[in-house]
Design a protein around this nucleic acid. Structure first.
Length: 935
RNA sequence: GCCGGGAUGGCGGAAUGGUCUACGCAGCAGACUUAAAAUCUGUAACGCUUAAUCGCGUCUGUGGGUUCGAGUCCCACUCCCGGCACCA
């Protein structure tokens, strides 16, 4: 047989497949459907690098297997091509965006075609095609009619470099523009906004139904929606929002955001100072306000106080930069003891700190029993440092407390102050008379346990101290009655945490060195009638007590939906002097993007479309008088918010998708991609739910299963970029080792979701494997054998493709080829089954070998091999023999052998036999796996 | 800080509570070759012991626990990656 030359065969089969249209999805069939979708690409000017096709290879393999398993497979591809990157590329290269996009699409298509994908190109879509964006505009009109698209003049994010408004989702976490990195400013201007917040609850709740989505994506979505249930409570005229109503008794001040209306009207005696502070905050950008260690600044409204509705005490009112105007009510209550931010603010400005929640947990090893009440007891815990050695004194307890290690501790006796108790315990338990108290933690903390020696349930309420001693020269002998219950140990500072045993001891030790608020849950204190109550319960009770209102807030804000740029879908609205914003009649869609001379941004906050008088002037659909078209365009995300529906029915010109087609194909069975964990998936789910509500689709969620891929880094472990010159081009790899080796390597690199660096050496491994498979064709003959490994491989590869564990599927095929190679001759049926398993990964070489075996139809239309469960295990298996849990050797035994037979075999083995104990107390035998003899 | 995920040879990574390191890369030795590349074959955690094999011991981030048996389950800790972050 001639040598494996990928150049010979890949082009040939790609052409053949194209001619025979074997990958076309059928709309008329009895077969069950599989809709497998990639996140469609944005065709940029740079072309593809090896990272881009990774997800496409995965869906290609998956869809090929599904097709061979008898499914009617829809695996389409298209282009998301509106938006800033295409427009900026066009401006830079001085060509029309239309021309640039067409060129980029052609280049992408060429690059994809040489990799041998099975896309059904008859369903190709392009979001910039009027036949497509007609329906994007149609969906906008439906949103408008339902009141979900509205005009707003609230300040929005404006990128001075891109010269357009942006949605919150378009910003980096530091508040810069994600496209160009410019600092974004707040600018009030008229915008179209979509009311995505109406769907926030449903988008959050339905995440729980998405059982086939990765947990981290769902978590990212939850974070972004940012729902929090809290309470609005009135402090006189000031309404605050809080999720910690249980800490109301600890609220020692109130803070307003600088933009809060009441800041202007409350009768502060230092009005000039307050106004100056507010003005200064407005000058600062988002970045300045959030950066630089988040140092909090504020000004007190002198002479203004409000009443804490729980304590009935007057508290001061501040205005501070750390309170956000657009979240909650723009005002918060300051509870420095139990909120990190309030703690930082209160320590800076010397505001009172009152603890109202005491962390208190039952000891997990020795919890209180249910039958008796809990008796509270005031105690002290002290960590004593020896200044000479730097070590700390701990107590190892004996008798009933065996195994417990704590700081020095004991009860506060009546008539004794806490400080006295501390020094007394040090004297008694450690016999050290010359210790000094350094400081007290300041928080009380509790631990509940069952004191078995007293038959009593106790809650120890501890004050925690740090003490020191300069030297141990005055230390006496520890009296016998103390030594019986505990021994004193000196421990290095770094070891203390490891040595302390009840969790509570670890907790107080850590708190002692942390200057932070207590955010743990616990029992209430300093809270009047609520003292001793669990804080979760107290939330409801205190809310009722002060007449608070339960409310739900979201971090998610409505979607700023207009861009002041040329390259986007025109928003189909006409502004009429008399009738305001009027929808363009559906029959007049699409509103075509006009041809223009200059499509550069105007910089005035108006779209370039505003300068095209012939286009802008249009009659009002209601009254016929001349009005003006909306000149803003839609954001880049519009077209991708419904495209999976269009693939189901790409040429329909009466609806975005026909009900029959949607019912058959929906929802997407597997959706694959990366990098769009939040934005695209949030927008897509929002539009899909809206389309469900208006009856266009029949499923609540668009994507039943989501597989999120890890990226491919350059060989140097860095992100591939033109600037670093480390881009690896798939065209080069395909030319060198072939599309099949390229595809297999991308799958073999590591788990699909892992980010891994490209390795040129690594590609060689899969190429060698393919060459071995090629050579093996010469060893096919009419013999039997290789049954177990073949059936195992069929099972493993089938299961692994189904679960996206492509790396181990490839490993298993390598194992098969290694074994087949050793066997010298291969049964024809097994080789053919193997080729079918390999076909989705390496479609070209397997097609060539398949035809080489005398077949005349495509291997890709064969049916997927099935395994025989009874053939999965070999007759003879290696059994590990352990003595007392330690491996002492292995023996070869029949899989079905009985325990006694295996023991006999082990005894008979000349090496193992000598290690067998003469007698044993227990035998553990797991057939076919392990024999463990306990002597 | 909160949430999610993770830590296994020189590297990427395998491993239903049952022989840790499959598979691949790199390495080393050998074959073929004038030579190199390519290809093929073998080898391969660490320590002790041995002439060598054998043998013994130690190894899945750290410390503890459950179990006949733990990479896997439980507790605590450390570090890494990702998401969110002055969202009350």
């Amino acid at each position: 047989m001639k040598n494996y030359d990928h150049k010979d065969i890949e082009k040939k089969w790609q052409d053949t497949w194209k001619k025979s249209a074997i990958y076309t999805a059928s709309d008329k069939t009895d077969k069950p459907k599989q809709y497998i979708l990639d996140m469609f690409p944005y065709p940029s000017g740079e072309g593809l690098h090896v990272g881009h096709p990774k997800g496409y290879v995965a869906t290609d393999i998956y869809s090929r297997m599904k097709r061979m398993q008898g499914f009617n497979v829809l695996h389409p591809m298209g282009w998301d091509a509106f938006g800033l990157p295409a427009e900026n590329y066009a401006i830079k290269n001085k060509i029309h965006p239309r021309v640039a996009v067409d060129k980029n699409i052609a280049r992408y298509k060429e690059q994809l075609s040489i990799i041998g994908f099975d896309y059904d190109w008859s369903r190709e879509i392009d979001t910039t095609d009027p036949a497509y964006y007609r329906w994007t505009q149609w969906i906008f009109l439906q949103l408008y009619k339902k009141g979900l698209a509205y005009e707003s003049t609230a300040p929005i994010n404006w990128c001075p470099s891109c010269q357009t408004g942006l949605a919150n989702e378009d910003l980096e976490s530091d508040g810069t523009c994600e496209r160009c990195g410019s600092v974004v400013v707040k600018k009030p201007m008229r915008q179209w906004v979509l009311k995505i917040t109406d769907y926030a609850d449903r988008m959050l709740a339905d995440l729980d139904t998405l059982t086939m989505w990765p947990a981290h994506i769902k978590e990212a979505q939850r974070n972004w929606i940012g729902r929090s249930e809290g309470v609005e409570i009135d402090f006189g005229p000031i309404r605050v929002f809080t999720t910690r109503a249980d800490t109301l008794y600890g609220a020692t001040y109130v803070v307003l955001a600088p933009e809060h209306e009441l800041v202007k009207t409350l009768p502060a005696t230092n009005r000039a100072e307050v106004d100056a502070f507010v003005a200064a905050q407005k000058m600062r950008t988002e970045i300045e306000r959030t950066a630089e260690g988040k140092e909090k600044t504020g000004v007190r409204l002198e002479g203004v106080t409000v009443i804490n509705p729980a304590t009935k005490e007057e508290v001061p009112v501040w205005v501070a930069d750390y309170v956000l105007a657009h979240y909650g009510t723009g005002g918060v209550m300051g509870v420095p003891a139990h909120d990190e931010r309030d703690y930082a603010f209160a320590t800076k400005y010397n505001l009172p700190i009152v603890q109202v929640v005491m962390p208190c947990s039952p000891d997990p090893k020795n919890p209180p029993t249910a039958d008796k009440p809990i008796v509270s007891r005031d105690t002290v815990i002290v960590f004593l440092k020896n200044n000479a050695s730097g070590k700390y004194a701990l107590l190892d307890w004996h008798e009933s407390l065996e195994g417990i290690t704590t700081g020095i501790m004991g009860g506060i006796e009546s008539g004794q102050t806490a400080d006295e108790a501390v020094l007394a315990e040090i004297r008694e338990e450690a016999s050290i008379p010359n210790a000094r108290i350094v400081r007290e933690l300041g928080w009380l903390s509790g631990a509940e346990y069952h004191a078995s020696h007293k038959g009593e349930n106790r809650r120890s309420i501890a004050r925690v101290y740090l003490a020191e001693v300069d030297d141990l020269s005055k230390q006496g002998a520890i009296p016998e009655h103390e030594a019986k219950t505990h021994s004193l140990v000196w421990v290095e500072e770094g070891e203390v945490l490891n040595r302390l045993v009840p969790v509570h001891q670890k907790f107080v030790w850590q708190q002692l060195f942390k200057k932070t608020a207590l955010t743990e849950s616990g029992l209430l204190m300093n809270s009047g009638e609520f003292d001793g109550m669990n804080n979760e319960e107290a939330k409801k009770k205190i809310t009722n007590h002060v007449g608070g209102r339960v409310v739900t807030k979201y971090k998610l804000q409505d979607w700023v939906f207009s861009r002041q740029r040329y390259w986007g879908e025109p928003i189909p609205i006409i502004h009429c002097a008399e009738h305001g914003a009027v929808a363009v009649p559906e029959s007049e869609l699409p509103v075509l993007l006009p041809e223009v001379e200059h499509y550069e941004p105007t910089g005035t906050g108006e779209s370039p479309l505003a300068n095209i008088t012939a286009w802008v002037n249009a009659p009002c659909p209601t009254c016929g008088k001349m009005g003006r078209r909306e000149t803003n365009t839609m954001p880049q995300w519009a077209g991708s918010s419904w495209y999976w529906l269009r693939f189901m029915d790409p040429t329909n010109n009466t609806a975005p998708v026909s009900p029959a087609q949607e019912k058959y194909w929906g929802p997407v069975d597997v959706y694959v991609g990366g990098d769009h964990a939040v934005r695209h998936l949030i927008y897509a789910r929002f539009w899909h739910k809206f389309l469900y509500d208006i009856g266009v689709v029949t499923t609540v969620e668009p994507f039943a299963r989501l597989e999120f891929l890890g990226f491919i880094l350059a060989e140097d472990g860095k992100k591939m970029s033109k600037r670093l010159g480390n881009i690896i081009n798939p065209d080069d790899v395909v030319a060198q080792v072939g599309a099949d080796a390229f595809r297999m390597y991308e799958m073999f690199m590591g788990p699909f979701e892992n980010t891994v660096a490209w390795s040129t050496h690594g590609v060689v491994g899969v190429r060698r494997f393919l060459e071995r498979v090629w050579r093996l064709a010469d060893t096919v003959s009419d013999i039997s054998g290789l049954d177990t490994i073949t059936h195992q491989t069929i099972k493993k590869v089938s299961d692994d493709i189904e679960t996206f564990k492509f790396n181990t599927a490839v490993s298993q095929m390598m194992i098969w080829s290694n074994e087949a190679d050793r066997a010298k001759r291969i049964p024809r049926a097994h080789y053919e089954a193997f080729l079918k398993l390999l076909a989705p990964f390496a479609p070209h070489i397997t097609e060539e070998l398949w035809h080489g075996l005398g077949h005349e139809t495509s291997i890709h239309q064969e049916s997927w091999p099935l395994y025989d469960p009874s053939q999965l295990e070999a007759e003879m298996v290696t059994i590990a023999v352990q003595v007392n849990g330690k491996l002492r050797g292995t023996i070869l035994s029949a899989r079905s052998a009985h325990q006694d037979e295996v023991i006999a075999l082990a005894k008979a083995d000349k090496v193992l036999g000598a290690k067998m104990p003469p007698a044993w107390s227990k035998i553990v035998y797991i057939p076919g796996r392990i024999l463990n003899i306990i002597s």
